[in-house]
Write a protein that binds this DNA or RNA. Structure first.
Length: 342
DNA sequence: GTTCCACAGGAAAATATGGAGG
DNA sequence: CCTCCATATTTTCCTGTGGAAC
């Protein structure tokens, strides 16, 4: 069943990154100067979760290290190391310069001094979840050291720079911005298929099942791989040759509920109102929806906008559209579906 | 068949938002 | 304060579709 469990684990860096050529090249070109000893601009990578930010960053870094001697890389998860001290300590630790640093006794500026003096190689610093830093000025400190190239990973750019001194922000304005969007279902399918090729027996899972996972994961590759891992683990424990649809539904169910809540939270008040109307009233056509909506809201949006809301919510699997043109009806999708359906 | 109507969803213009810089 | 710029959202305008009435 499972041939190589590593490829299904979170944090695995594949040989090739699927459907991110443009982003890979972009990020690569920003960091390129570091391979010839030049200082590189800071790169900011943003996008929703599971869009490959961390993966692409590490992939690009690894590839640079293949191309040039004397390029090191270090990865810091700023959520786990969210203080200035811990972040800097983590970097020093990675490059092996922490020998005589002790938490209590070492003045904080000592750490940045050490980094400043470090000149044995050029280093790419990946600051993952950089928006979690309680003091983002670390980014600027690192940015000003020419032997370090910084990649900042965050969900949204604004959150990254929200609580910081304006002067510092403007110094980082030159940084290159790499955006990642959610994957489409067929892109997720390709990603999953590649993982299956490396990690599982060839016929352990069908194409339909992979598309089912892609659908449940709603553009989130981490979640998609997580579902596959859970299902494969279950099949493996039960000495099954193949992943059954039941195993898949179990694994996907949790993921779906999670995503559904997240999508619901991300709706604007107007979108929320539309959703509530459909939830209360049951299946409705766009005209009825817009009528009810107009009555319930100050400054209502136009019909066209409501149509965009509807199709967006349908994409997010919050709503279901049935029928073609004139007889189209929208209904809410309830998350507690029976395991046999779908 | 033809006409009509509500609808889907693309394109582009208009408008709102938020930060940088004068 | 205002202006410029980038981005996101909304509106306007539009074409194409299919069912229903004629």
């Amino acid at each position: 069943m499972i041939r190589d469990a590593r490829v299904l684990r979170a944090g695995f860096i594949p040989q090739e990154v699927e459907h991110r050529d443009h982003e890979v090249n972009h990020l690569s070109s920003v960091l390129k100067p570091i391979t010839s000893g030049e200082p590189a601009d800071t790169a900011v990578v943003t996008g929703p979760s599971g869009t490959g930010k961390t993966c692409v960053s590490q992939f690009v870094t690894e590839r640079l290290r293949e191309e040039a001697l004397n390029v090191e890389a270090t990865y810091v998860n700023c959520w786990r190391n969210h203080t200035r001290f811990r972040t800097l300590y983590q970097i020093l630790d990675d490059i092996g310069k922490t020998i005589d640093i002790h938490r209590q006794s070492t003045p904080h500026d000592e750490l940045i001094d050490r980094l400043q003096q470090y000149d044995e190689s050029r280093t790419v610093v990946i600051l993952d979840e950089a928006d979690q830093l309680e003091d983002p000025s670390v980014i600027y400190d690192l940015h000003s050291l020419p032997q370090f190239a910084v990649i900042c990973i965050a969900n949204k750019e604004e959150e990254l720079f929200s609580q910081v001194d304006d002067r510092l922000v403007s110094r980082l304005r030159s940084s290159e911005h790499v955006r990642m969007d959610k994957y489409h279902d067929d892109q997720l399918y390709d990603i999953l298929r590649a993982r299956v090729r490396w990690g599982l027996e060839q016929d352990a899972v069908t194409d339909d099942q992979l598309y089912c996972i892609a659908d449940a994961a709603a553009g989130d590759a981490r979640l998609a791989i997580g579902i596959l891992r859970t299902a494969a683990g279950k099949a493996d424990r039960e000495n099954s040759e193949r992943i059954t649809d039941t195993m898949l539904q179990d694994a996907a169910g949790d993921a779906r509920a999670q995503i559904r809540q997240k999508s619901l939270d991300s709706l604007t008040p107007h979108q929320r109102e539309v959703y509530e109307i459909i939830r209360e009233q049951g299946a409705l056509g766009p005209a009825e929806i817009h009528d009810l909506y107009t009555k319930r809201v100050d400054e209502p949006r136009t019909k066209r906008t409501i149509r965009t809301y509807l199709s967006k919510m349908a994409q997010y699997n919050l709503l279901e559209a049935e029928g073609t043109s004139r007889d189209r009806k929208y209904a809410v999708i309830t998350s507690g579906t029976s395991p046999s359906t779908d």
